[in-house]
Design a binder for these strands. Sequence first.
DNA 1: ATACATACC
DNA 2: GACTGGTATGTAT
Length: 897
Amino acid sequence: MASNEEFDFLSDEENFENDWKFDENDDISTYINSSTTPLSADTNKEVVNLGKAMTIVAENNSNERKVSRMDLNTTKAGMDGLDKDKINQIILEASKGSKFYENEKKREKQVQKRIEELQRKMASFTNEQKVKAKQAADKIVQELEQGRDLSRTIVHVDMDAYYAAVEMRDDPSLKSKPMAVGGSAMLCTSNYLARRYGVRAGMPGFIAKKLCPNLTIVRTNFDKYTKISHEIREVLAEYDRNFLPMSLDEAYLDITDYLRGNEGQNKRMGEVKEEESKDIEGKHDTGKIAGVKFESTDTQENVCAETKENDKTKTENAKDAKFIVRVKQETKLVEVKQETSKIEALPNHDFEVTKQVKVERAFDDDVTKYKQNEKDSEGTHRPNRTEAQETKGDIELEPIPLKAETAKHELDENSFNQQKGEGMITVGQSEAQGESDWDFGHGSSENDTSFLHEEPAVAEQEMFYNKVEEVVKEMRRKIEVKTQLTASAGIAPNMFLAKVCSDKNKPNGQFYLKPERDKIMDFVRELPLRKAFGIGRVSEQILTSVLKANTCSELYDRRHLMQLLFTPNACTNYLEISLGLGSTVVDVDRERKSMSTETTFKEINKPEEHLAKCHELCQELSESLKAHRLTARKIGIKLKTINFEVKTRVVTASFPVQQTEELFSHAKKLLVNEIRSSSPEPLRLRLMGVRAAELCEKGMVNESKQPTIISLMKKNGSVRERSISLNASQAAESSKACGPEQEVSLEHGSMSREDEVRHSEICSDLTVLDDHPSTSKEYTNDHVPSDQLGCHNFHGNAKTERSSNQAVSREEPTTFNCPVCGRDLTFRSGNALLQMNRHVDTCLSKQAVPGVLKYDSGQQTNKAKQSSKKRKRESSKNTNRTVKRKPMDRFVTKHTK
DNA sequence: ATACATACC
DNA sequence: GACTGGTATGTAT
């Protein structure tokens, strides 16, 4: 069991890691290699005893083998002794020749191409360019360094093998078996026994079975995980009521305030809840607007919830000139202190206050907290602060103080200039030198120790550190007592580091990276880049193969090259990573930007089935939109062919939509367009998705946006004309299509007069588009040869051979097979194509999908019924549809910026 | 602005 | 014999 422990410690939890193949946590004692030599092309012999796999190795040595995106990631310590290659071979065997694998190869080639381009580009740099680039990079580094904030204590809590742990807790017999949780298509997580076979989260079941034939697969029970997750969150909330859940088993907390005096906070919880629920408007004392944080220690959770509820308010108010405070340069935490009716830009600060903010309530705590901050960083951390700025009455914007490090910076440049003099600036150069200038600030006490407290404070600081550890231990213990499940935690001054730390002593452990720059730099020095948030397998590959950088320090050493190769955004991000910088703002109230549904299915290649599926998805999406009271101005579809090629298409609607039929009307056209484009081949899909973006709150649409739309439409002669040109049956048709959902769509019961007007305008508009696809720019297939538009329109069913436009426009009768109604139709006039398209479009709009099934065989109908039943089952099983999405509501990719 | 790619859980 | 789903964001065109 010793080996068990040894490897368990590495285990990453149920991330839905797409790249499980490369994960360093393939801690498979079963496949431990007696030799620690990493298997490479010339060590293939080691695989001989795997029999079948060996064949593949041999075979793949020629060219198959070079799918490096399928290679294992060997960057992490503790990997010695694992034969990841054996696992890889089995996986390779299982997927070899599959469409998935072929697609992976294709993508690999694309990445390879990108890499080659970058390499070429890099070879062309002159020394002069590099010198300049380095200066630019150093300037950014200086700015970043100045913004370094070590004042927060961020905790990342991560449950150990969460789903698997839950299942084992509830069925102890599973503890002794290799087990995974998930479906046959995809596993969510696995227990430690299974991991020893290489069975991991994100792995399809059939491959897992090959790796571990005895594997028990337990079906997911999200209800249970969700319920337990709530219990866990109750504990977390005691430490930070504004904590940020990332998923059911993972969350970030900012326990800074808790550490400063938890009694106060707990006491406040009750009071605030009552008060706050009454009036939302007046209590925006906390929130983050345009990069400025209005912070008040005591109402975080509630205000956060409100802000969420009021996302719209924020946006809207921006329009009304209510709160706009722009922080120049980059996002920094700015504290707004105390009640006031205005914000002023203070001289010599990086702020531009363009609008005024009104905060109606005063919180003494703000002041208290502020003073605490002040004390913490006295003389160093906030050097710009003056007494005058503390004056009550006006909100003060306090930038995170800049740490003066110019001298250091120049030193750095000098060392570079020396290199330049030798004309030796190349990739790998600094490696050759053996001396990295990465931790340029390291050891320079003038910078670093000044951050910390003076001598007398040392003991106090130790106490503080102990307290931090104890608090987090207590938190984990509470979780365990409550749920019988263990959690691991990482504690650090920012989210990036906290996340890495939580992995360090997993399972059931914690790691505290103390808020000292030296310690951070040491910690980060050998950190594999892949660990950094935002660096996935592709970026890693680029960084290793182009920049020859595997760790943060190596990345830092190549900063001049980065500067020349990558976009400013990417560079800044990479620099932050290499300096161990990350977001210090556990930011909960982010607006949702999109909402989508997608499903994978057995091949669908018939247009009517495509449309039926699309309609289903629109319905689902519509429900979600309604549940969140959102409407969308952008509607998109996502298609994945049976070859795993993904296509996305979007349209911008003329007005925000929410109803199934509205969504469908847009999605349908996008879809039909793709069906046409793929002709004469049928569109063979394995996945379809519908997405809504540019969301706005429903209420707003009716009140503010709607009149605009109507007036716009009224002004627009062509729209008007076409609307009018609808014949009676079409009009009836369209209002029928839109009709069924009217009531649901309106929050306050029956339609208002305005709504009715709008509604019929909508329907008309949509129908017009339906009926005249060639007059609507969005849906016209200008780029497609017109023979495709016509006969190819629907998988080459035209019975008359033609090869050009001219042929089509002749008087020859042309016969089409309509893919929707299935009838053969013959057109004689010159515009047979147009007629056919019209027919199909009309056919489609008539069907509005419930009707689609009428045209299908009984078999098809049953299938559709089954699938709808299945969906219902699933949604009743997962009563947590909204709950399931909730963590995602708060999903934050924030990484400073 | 749209499409595609990458990333995260 | 056949590799998820939801969301965000960056990059290229």
